[in-house]
Simulated scan of single mutants.
Amino acid sequence: MMSDSSLDPILACMRFGLHALVVGLAAFACTSAYVDSSATAPWILLAGAAFVVVYVVGVRTGCSSGRRPSRAAGIGWLVVLTCLWAVMAMLRPEGAYLVFPLFFVYLRVLPGIGGVGAVLAAAAFVVYALGRHSGFSVGGVVGPLVGAGVALLMGLAYHALVREIRERERLLRELISTRGQLAEVERAQGVLAERARLARDIHDTVAQGLSSIQMLLRAAERDAPETSAAYLAMARETAAESLADTRQIIGELTPSRLDGGLAAALRRLGVEQGERSSVVVDVRAEDRDLPMDVQTALLRIAQGALSNSIRHANARRVEVVLTGDPDSVQLAIRDDGCGFDVDSVDSGTHDLGSFGLLAMRERTEQLGGVFEISAQRSLGTTVTVRVPLCDRRKVVS
């Protein structure tokens, strides 16, 4: 997984700014003590150096992340850091300024009410420390409280930004995964379409030619003299064996689900999906001899529509009806699910769940057919596919 820096430079800049503020304020407190020739200068220098070292070690070791399993180590690190800061604040008023970056550290290491409590406690200590140095005043009380309020607001904004980046990262991973799945599905569909085309072409050329040769040889065998009949019979048997081999090749190129034809494939699909909902398959075109690409397309559309009905529409009953006439075949999938807004799909304002419907439409239009959706919320959905057959060559297995 990518780091925050690579995900969003804003987070990296904010953290770098926090680190620079800690080091800068610690250096300012130490320098001011030496500029004023304060007797506490060596002590505040020692405390400031220890504070910076402890802070850097905690950042480098991950104690500042506030995540398990380093939560206990982070709290321990925070206690030591707070004690060193308290010493600096008691020695010099400038040391109290370090409380502002500490506010953000508290909110990061102690998320939730713990961080808020630590911020308020630190602000109260700053009020006491400043009052001890120069007396209590309205500015000395209001200033730290305002700083604490600003820190809390900025902390909330920071956490909201982190959540948004995490969500964006999750969506990006899902998008990449979905894109890979779509590419794999598209590749598989291309392979199936090419296999179906090869099966159709082999049937319409080689298989039909061998079948014609058989019939011609059988006719010639009846009228041929006895000396030639044996050779004609041998040629006919060879053609029959070649035709059988060709049909076996056609069968291997045909999708395995369609081994028994589209009607059988639809019934098997209904049994498989019937474990989740009641699926009724009504085939009224049992004897129709459909081209392989039409069978493959209708089966894929039925699979997608059933999946949508059961998984997304929560349908309790789904009907799959296959009908036909001499010029066309029609597949209808009706469910009693929750339905949806058809206009959102037609207008292109769809989500990932409607890509299946768009794929069904494209598959139907590739066959020159008509794809229709009828749906109402809470009243179910009906998907209807009509594919013309009058200008298509039939594939007979």
Rank of each mutant, 00 (worst) to 15 (best):
A148H: 02
F16R: 14
E226L: 13
F16W: 14
G149D: 00
S3G: 14
S3Q: 14
E164K: 06
F125Y: 10
Q376T: 10
S65M: 12
H203Y: 12
S32I: 05
S134T: 13
D293G: 01
A219W: 04
V342W: 05
E237W: 04
L352V: 14
V126D: 07
D259W: 01
Q248N: 08
P101K: 04
R363A: 07
A188W: 00
L91D: 04
R316I: 00
C390H: 10
V321T: 11
G337V: 02
F136K: 03
M234N: 09
V56A: 13
G270P: 01
L322D: 01
L7H: 09
R276H: 07
V23K: 01
L7G: 12
L232D: 10
S242Y: 06
P111H: 10
L21A: 10
T82Q: 11
G95I: 03
S32Y: 06
A129Y: 08
A157N: 09
D259C: 05
L306G: 01
C83L: 15
L18V: 08
V52R: 02
D204N: 07
D259F: 05
D36F: 11
V206Y: 06
V185Q: 11
A219G: 02
E319A: 10
R68A: 12
V383R: 01
H203F: 08
D259G: 09
H312Q: 09
V52N: 04
F51G: 06
L290A: 08
A297I: 07
L262R: 06
F104G: 07
R197W: 15
S177P: 00
L110I: 06
V109L: 10
V383A: 07
G339W: 02
N314H: 13
V385K: 03
L269V: 09
S37Y: 08
T178K: 08
I213C: 11
V142M: 05
G356D: 13
E167M: 02
A375H: 07
S354G: 08
V56R: 04
Q181P: 00
L120I: 14
R288T: 04
E362S: 13
A12S: 15
Q303M: 12
P388W: 01
V23D: 02
T31G: 01
R187S: 09
V387P: 00
R92Y: 04
K394C: 03
A332L: 12
E286Q: 14
G369M: 13
L102R: 03
C338S: 15
G117S: 08
S347G: 04
Y158G: 06
Q330I: 09
A47H: 01
